[in-house]
Measured scan of single mutants.
Amino acid sequence: KTVKFDGLQFDFDNPEKALKFALEVAKQKGAEVHIHGDEIKIE
């Protein structure tokens, strides 16, 4: 899975870790997590 935000991109082999990371970043930024297939966007 790939996590994208602020023009940055982070690749994870483990989908659970990717989602956990995305949710943590979103919480800190006050943003929402959007999942599109293998891509997780924080907006």
Rank of each mutant, 00 (worst) to 15 (best):
Q28V: 09
A31D: 05
E32V: 15
F21I: 03
Q9H: 08
H34N: 07
K29T: 14
P15I: 14
D6W: 08
I40G: 02
I35Y: 08
G37Q: 09
F10Y: 11
G37K: 07
E24N: 03
Q9E: 11
E32N: 12
L23I: 12
D13K: 07
A22I: 03
F21S: 03
A26I: 01
Q28K: 12
F21E: 06
F5K: 02
D11L: 13
A18Q: 01
A26R: 00
E43K: 10
L8N: 06
N14G: 05
G37S: 05
L19K: 02
H34V: 13
K29W: 15
K4E: 06
K4Y: 14
E24R: 03
V33T: 03
L8T: 05
G37F: 09
G37V: 06
G7R: 03
K20P: 01
D13N: 08
E32W: 14
A18Y: 01
T2Q: 06
K17V: 13
Q9K: 11
K41M: 13
F10I: 08
H36T: 11
T2R: 06
K29D: 08
E16D: 11
D6E: 10
Q9T: 14
F5L: 06
K41I: 15
E24V: 04
G30V: 05
D11N: 12
E24P: 00
I40P: 02
E32C: 15
Q9I: 13
P15N: 08
D38I: 08
F12D: 03
D6R: 04
K29Q: 12
K27A: 13
E32D: 10
A26T: 00
K4N: 07
A18M: 01
F10V: 06
L23S: 06
E16C: 15
E43Y: 14
E24Q: 09
F5Q: 04
G7H: 05
V33I: 13
K27G: 10
L8M: 12
K29E: 10
F10E: 02
K4V: 12
K41F: 15
E43Q: 11
H36F: 12
H34Y: 12
A31M: 14
F21C: 09
A18C: 06
H36P: 02
H34Q: 09
L19F: 08
E24A: 10
Q28C: 15
G7V: 04
F10H: 04
V25I: 13
P15S: 11
A31E: 05
V25M: 10
T2P: 03
F21Q: 04
E24S: 07
F5I: 08
F5H: 03
Q9N: 07
F21R: 00
E39R: 01
E24L: 08
F12E: 04
V33R: 00
K20N: 10
L23N: 08
H34D: 05
I40C: 09
K4G: 04
G7C: 14
H36M: 12
D6K: 04
A26E: 04
A31N: 04
I40V: 03
K27C: 14
Q28A: 12
L19I: 09
I35A: 06
G37R: 06
A18L: 01
K1M: 15
N14R: 04
V3G: 03
A31W: 15
I42T: 03
K4C: 15
L23P: 00
K1F: 15
V3E: 03
D38H: 11
D38V: 07
E32G: 08
G30P: 03
P15A: 13
G7N: 07
T2D: 04
I42N: 00
D38P: 06
V33Y: 06
D11M: 12
P15L: 15
H34G: 05
A18K: 00
G7F: 05
I35F: 11
Q28Y: 10
I42G: 01
L23Y: 13
I42K: 02
K17G: 10
E24T: 05
F10W: 13
T2H: 07
K41L: 15
A26H: 01
A18P: 00
Q28S: 11
G7S: 05
D11Y: 15
P15Y: 14
E43S: 11
K27Y: 10
K27V: 10
K29I: 15
I35G: 01
K1A: 14
L19T: 01
D13H: 06
L23F: 11
G7T: 04
A31R: 06
A26M: 01
G7I: 04
D13F: 05
G7Y: 05
I35W: 09
F12Q: 01
E16S: 08
D38E: 07
L19P: 01
D6H: 07
A22T: 01
G7D: 06
V3D: 03
D38K: 07
K27M: 12
K1L: 14
D11Q: 13
D6C: 15
K4F: 14
N14H: 07
V3Q: 03
V3M: 00
A22D: 04
D6T: 00
L23A: 07
D11G: 06
N14D: 15
F5W: 09
V25F: 09
N14S: 13
T2V: 13
A22N: 00
Q28P: 02
E32P: 05
I35R: 02
L8A: 04
L19G: 00
F12S: 01
E43A: 10
I42E: 02
I42P: 03
H36G: 07
V33P: 03
H34C: 14
K17Q: 14
G37P: 07
A22H: 00
E43P: 04
D38M: 09
L19C: 15
V33Q: 03
A22G: 02
D13G: 03
G30H: 09
L19D: 05
G37Y: 06
A18R: 00
V33L: 10
D13Y: 04
V25L: 13
D11K: 12
F5A: 03
K1V: 15
I42L: 07
E16G: 06
K4W: 14
D13S: 08
G30D: 08
T2G: 02
D11S: 12
E43G: 13
F12N: 01
T2M: 05
A31L: 14
A18H: 00
V25G: 00
A26P: 00
K17W: 10
A18G: 00
L23C: 15
K27H: 10
I42R: 00
K29C: 15
G37A: 09
D11W: 15
V33E: 02
E16T: 07
K4S: 11
I40H: 02
E39I: 14
E32S: 14
T2F: 08
D6S: 05
G30Q: 08
A26W: 00
K29H: 14
I40W: 01
D13L: 08
E43V: 14
Q28L: 13
I42H: 03
V3I: 04
K20I: 11
Q28D: 10
G7L: 05
D6P: 00
K20F: 08
P15Q: 07
E32L: 13
P15R: 07
E39H: 10
K27I: 10
D11T: 13
Q28R: 11
H36D: 13
L8C: 14
F21L: 04
F21H: 06
F10Q: 03
G30M: 05
A26Y: 02
Q28F: 09
P15T: 11
Q9S: 13
K1T: 15
Q28H: 10
K41P: 02
H34W: 12
H36I: 13
V25P: 00
E39M: 11
G30W: 06
Q28W: 13
K29N: 12
K27D: 07
F21G: 04
H36Y: 14
I35H: 07
F21Y: 07
Q9L: 09
L19V: 01
Q28T: 08
E24Y: 10
N14Y: 03
L8E: 06
V33G: 01
E16Q: 09
L23G: 03
E16A: 09
F10S: 02
K27Q: 11
H34S: 11
E24M: 10
V3H: 02
E24I: 06
F12Y: 03
H34R: 09
L19E: 05
F5S: 01
H36A: 10
K41R: 15
D11R: 12
K29F: 15
F12M: 01
H36C: 15
L19Y: 10
A31P: 03
K17H: 13
V33K: 01
G30N: 10
A22M: 02
K20M: 12
K20Y: 09
F21D: 07
K29V: 14
F10D: 02
I35K: 04
V25N: 01
F12T: 02
V33S: 02
T2E: 04
G30T: 01
K41C: 15
I35N: 02
L19H: 04
Q9V: 13
K20E: 13
K1N: 09
E32F: 14
E32Q: 14
L23Q: 10
L8F: 10
E24F: 08
P15W: 15
K1S: 13
E39P: 01
N14C: 13
E43M: 13
F21M: 02
D11F: 15
A22F: 04
L19W: 12
G30A: 06
E24K: 07
N14A: 07
L23E: 10
H36Q: 12
L19M: 12
G30S: 03
V25E: 05
E39L: 12
I35T: 04
E24H: 06
D38Y: 08
F10K: 02
K29R: 10
E39Y: 12
A22S: 01
